[in-house]
Design a protein around this nucleic acid. Structure first.
Lengths: 309, 309
DNA sequence: CTTTATTGATGTACCTTGTGCATCAATCGT
DNA sequence: ACGATTGATGCACAAGGTACATCAATAAAG
C-alpha cells in the first residue's frame, strides 16, 4: 500500500466529474475556479494520468477518468458510511459488545441482564462467550473482550469492577444424605465429607475462594474428585460420590435426586462482579453496566443479598 | 454526502491503528511524532469522537475506532486499486471501448478488426453496438461511444476520421434477371429497374451517397420499396420485387437465388471510415485505430481498393 | 525506592501550501 | 465583429502543518 496519491483531492474530482464544468464545480465546493483548476491539475500530476480532456468550452472525462470516477464514487460514499457507523458506535447506539461470563453467572444473572440490554439496545450486537474468571482477566487486558461477569472481588487499577450480586452458597448432596435432614448446614458440618469441585484449570478462582472460606471457618477440606463442568459435577453428586458447594441459583435447575441446603454462615457468599477496562470509555460498555445495575436493583433474585459478608 | 471529514488523515489513522504506537507510526509515515499526535487529534476533532484511548504507556482503539478501522482499511485499499485500474486504462492496457458499426462493416470489416484487437489487447473490454452512420455521429459527440465504423467520408473539426476501405458496389438481382447475363453492369443499365433500398430512418447516409452517385452518372432512379434490414432487402430481391445495390462483401453471404454483378464505374464505391472524437486521446482508442489500419493493410479484402474514386 | 528510559502531549518558530484576485487566450452565441 | 463565458496562470497573502525542544506520566531496571 503506497500512500493513496491524491486521496484528499478525490472529492473535488468526483464533483467535477459529475458537473463537467470547473466553474459550477468550484461554486459547489465553495472555492474559486482557479483553486479547483489547480486541484485537478495537481491530482492528475499525482496520479500520473489525465482525468479530463478540456478545452475552454468543454470538459469531458478521459476513459481513465471515467474508470476512476466509477470506482471512486462508491468508495467515498462508503467512507461516509464508515464515519456514520463509527459515530453511532461512539454513541453506543450500535456496535459489537464482547461479553464473557463464568459458570455461575450463566445460570441466571447474565441471561437476565442480556435480555434487558437487548430490549433496550437492539442495535448493539452482543458476542457472548463462556470464560472462567481467571481467563477473563487476561482476555480483558488483551482487549479480546469488553466486559466480563466474573467472581469478585476484583480490584485492579486498570479495571473497573462493579458488584452485581452476592449469592449465598448451598450444599448440594444426594437425596438421603445424612445432612439432608437439616434445614441449614454449618461449615463445620462439612468436615470429613467428600467435596467434589470443578477442576483447577477452569475453576481456579472459585476454588481459591472456597478454600479461603473453609480455612477461616477452621474446617479443613480437600476435594476428593474433580469435574470439568457443572453438569458433570451434579452427575457425580447424584451418583453418591460426594457433595458439592455451589451458589444458590443452581437450586432451581436440579431435579429431585439432589437436594440443597443453605450454609448458615454469612462468609459463605460468592460475589459476582462486572468488570471492564478502565481505559475503555465506550458508551455501549457504560450502557451495559448501567443496564446490569438496573437489572439487579429492579428485581434482585430471591435470596440474594445486596452486600457481601 | 458531506465532504468526507478527515479523509486526508485516514491513512495516518489506519497505520496508527495497526501499530498502536504513535512513535512507530510516525516513523513509518516519515514524520515527527508530534505531527502524528496532532493529526490524530485533528481527525478525532473532525469526526467528533475518540478513536484511541491513550495514556503515556499504551494506545488502544475505542470501539468506534475499531469500527472505523475495519471499515476504512478495505476502503483505502480499494482506492489504491481504483488508482491502479485507472492508470492501466490510461495506458490503454484495459478498460472499456465502446465501438459502433453500421451494416456494411458488420459483414466483414468490423469482425476482422475486432478479432485482431481482442487477440492483441485481451484486457480491453469491447462493447459493440449496431448504429447507423447518422446516429453514430450523434452518439460520438455525446460521448456514448468511443469509436464508430461508418460510411465516409466524414470531415469535422471535432472528429478524427481514418479511411479503412473503399468497397465496390454490386448489383444484386434475382436469378434469371436480364442483367444477370452480363459480367458487369453500368449505372445507366439500371435506369427503369425497380431499386429496393433500406428505409430512410436507418439507411439515410447510404441512400444519400447512392443518390448522389446515380445523379452524377446521369441516371434517374427512385427506390420503389423500402426494407428495414439487409435480410429483408435480400428477401424482397429474391422474391422478384426488384434489385438492390450493395457493397461487394455481401456476395459471399448470399446463396444461389440471388446473383451479383459489379458496377463498372469507379465512382460506385463506398468508403468505410473509423471515427473518434478528436479530443479523446485515450490510448486504447488509438490502439484500436492502429489495429484497424494494420488489419486492412496486412490483408485487404479481395477486390478492395486502397483509395476511393 | 530511586533512577532511567520511553511514552504521548504541547508550546514555539518556521516554511510549505493552498487560496482569492486579477488577468489571459480561446471559443461560442448573437 | 463583438461580448460573454470558459479554463489556465501570475502573484501576494494567510492558514496550516511541520520539526524541534520540552513536559508529565509511567514502566522497567538497579
Amino acid at each position: 500500500m503506497d500512500e493513496h496519491p491524491g486521496l484528499d483531492l478525490a472529492h473535488s474530482f468526483l464533483i467535477a466529474a459529475e458537473e463537467l464544468s470547473f466553474r459550477r464545480t468550484a461554486e459547489r465546493l465553495g472555492i474559486d475556479q482557479s483553486a479547483l483548476s489547480r486541484r485537478i491539475a495537481k491530482l492528475e500530476r499525482q496520479l500520473g494520468f489525465q482525468l479530463f480532456e478540456r478545452t475552454t468550452r468543454q470538459v469531458v472525462l478521459t476513459p481513465a477518468g471515467r474508470s476512476f470516477y466509477e470506482a471512486g464514487a462508491p468508495l467515498l460514499a462508503g467512507y461516509d458510511r464508515a464515519v456514520a457507523t463509527a459515530r453511532r458506535v461512539a454513541q453506543g447506539k450500535t456496535g459489537l459488545l464482547r461479553v464473557a461470563y463464568m459458570a455461575f453467572a450463566a445460570i441466571e444473572l447474565m441471561p437476565r441482564v442480556v435480555k434487558r440490554f437487548r430490549a433496550a439496545n437492539p442495535a448493539v450486537e452482543l458476542a457472548l462467550r463462556y470464560l472462567p474468571t481467571q481467563e477473563q482477566k487476561i482476555a480483558l487486558s488483551e482487549g479480546e473482550i469488553d466486559l466480563g461477569f466474573m467472581i469478585g472481588p476484583f480490584e485492579h487499577s486498570d479495571f473497573d469492577s462493579r458488584q452485581l450480586a452476592s449469592d449465598p452458597l448451598h450444599v448440594f448432596m444426594p437425596r438421603g444424605h445424612p445432612l439432608s435432614t437439616r434445614r441449614t448446614v454449618a461449615p463445620r458440618d462439612l468436615a470429613g465429607e467428600d467435596l467434589l469441585l470443578g477442576d483447577m484449570a477452569e475453576w481456579e478462582a472459585y476454588r481459591r475462594h472456597l478454600g479461603e472460606k473453609f480455612a477461616r471457618a477452621g474446617v479443613p477440606v480437600t476435594p476428593r474428585q474433580e469435574a470439568s463442568s457443572t453438569m458433570a459435577l451434579l452427575g457425580l453428586v447424584a451418583a453418591g460420590f460426594g457433595i458439592t458447594v455451589y451458589p444458590r441459583q443452581l437450586t432451581g435447575l436440579i431435579g429431585t435426586t439432589i437436594v440443597s441446603r443453605p450454609i448458615a454462615d454469612p462468609a459463605f457468599h460468592i460475589e459476582t462482579v462486572l468488570v471492564r477496562r478502565r481505559i475503555d470509555r465506550a458508551a455501549s460498555v457504560r450502557r451495559f453496566i448501567d443496564c446490569a445495575l438496573d437489572t439487579v436493583r429492579a428485581a434482585p433474585a430471591e435470596g440474594k443479598k445486596r452486600d457481601a459478608h
